[in-house]
Design a binder for these strands. Structure first.
Lengths: 152, 152
DNA sequence: GTAGATGCAAAAGCTTTGCATGGGT
DNA sequence: ACCCATGCAAAGCTTTTGCATCTAC
């Protein structure tokens, strides 16, 4: 994360980011941010575009794409590439982003883990990178698919 | 992983997987596997297609895609979706798959970590998934980009 | 002999780009 | 006023699909 979630609201953080980078504080960008922060869970561009359109806002898909890039760049939104078909997004609440993905049906569950800060420190020491965030993806079978006992 | 790397060669594992699943043991599938296991590092479909064609093999891109799906399904090849543009692949040598990605220049480094089995066990207990593999991606700045002190 | 695999090309689907218009600074 | 951002549509690119042919079993 770039800014402190304890100290600023998402809107303030976006405002700050745009100003710092000499980008325009357009109503579309703030509206999209606001709607995204009402969404609980993952969504993709197509869904977001329809959702925002249904709410009566007139925004083009190009603007959605543009804005998602801004929001991911400043860390307000997290982007996942679970597969190549389409990107998946979620608001960033500052918590960890650990996912378990079912390789059979695509279901995604989340979990918390206390050991990840250690892993970040270890990796930073070994690679000399400055680590800001992490994504942990575990792959396997969800309870339903596991009972079907696929031939693997 | 599904099979034991200590016990079988990649070719034997593919043979076993195809037989078990009543799929055909075609020469293309074994040829593609063989070439992939000579490649050190990440590659994408386009690169692999050109590479294999340059070696004098006559395979269609459709067969490459088909085979990559087979090879990832049986765990012989690992697929990464670093971005939506195209999928990235690498042979599976049975080691962990932990990457550190520079958010500025895209450079990727790898690291080993001993704590990940614990995380898998913990996640399995909480979510009831059967975990088979993992991908850990840490995001930050590589040493070179970190010294440039970007305006973030 | 039959069902599954391949090769080729066309189609599909997500994302990017071009250009005229509009709006933030 | 300047020029970045938006809206709309077309273009771009990776991946998927359809179909005839081929081949592993």
């Amino acid at each position: 994360m770039i800014y402190d979630f304890e100290e600023f609201t998402p809107k303030e953080m976006l405002d700050k980011y745009l100003t710092t980078n000499k980008m325009r504080r357009t109503p579309e960008r703030f509206m999209i941010l606001e709607e995204i922060y009402k969404i609980d869970g993952h969504f993709d561009i197509e869904w977001l575009y329809k959702h925002i359109s249904d709410l009566g806002h007139n925004v083009s898909k190009a603007t959605i794409y543009n804005t998602m890039e801004v929001l991911t760049a400043c860390g307000l939104v997290i982007r996942h590439d679970f597969d190549t078909a389409r990107a998946s997004y979620e608001r960033n609440l500052g918590k960890g982003h650990n996912h378990v993905v079912c390789v059979n049906c695509g279901k995604v569950a989340e979990f918390d883990d206390m050991e990840i800060p250690q892993i970040e420190d270890n990796a930073a020491a070994v690679t000399n990178f400055e680590i800001y965030s992490h994504r942990v993806y575990l792959y396997g079978l969800c309870p339903q698919c596991a009972t079907k006992k696929l031939s693997r």
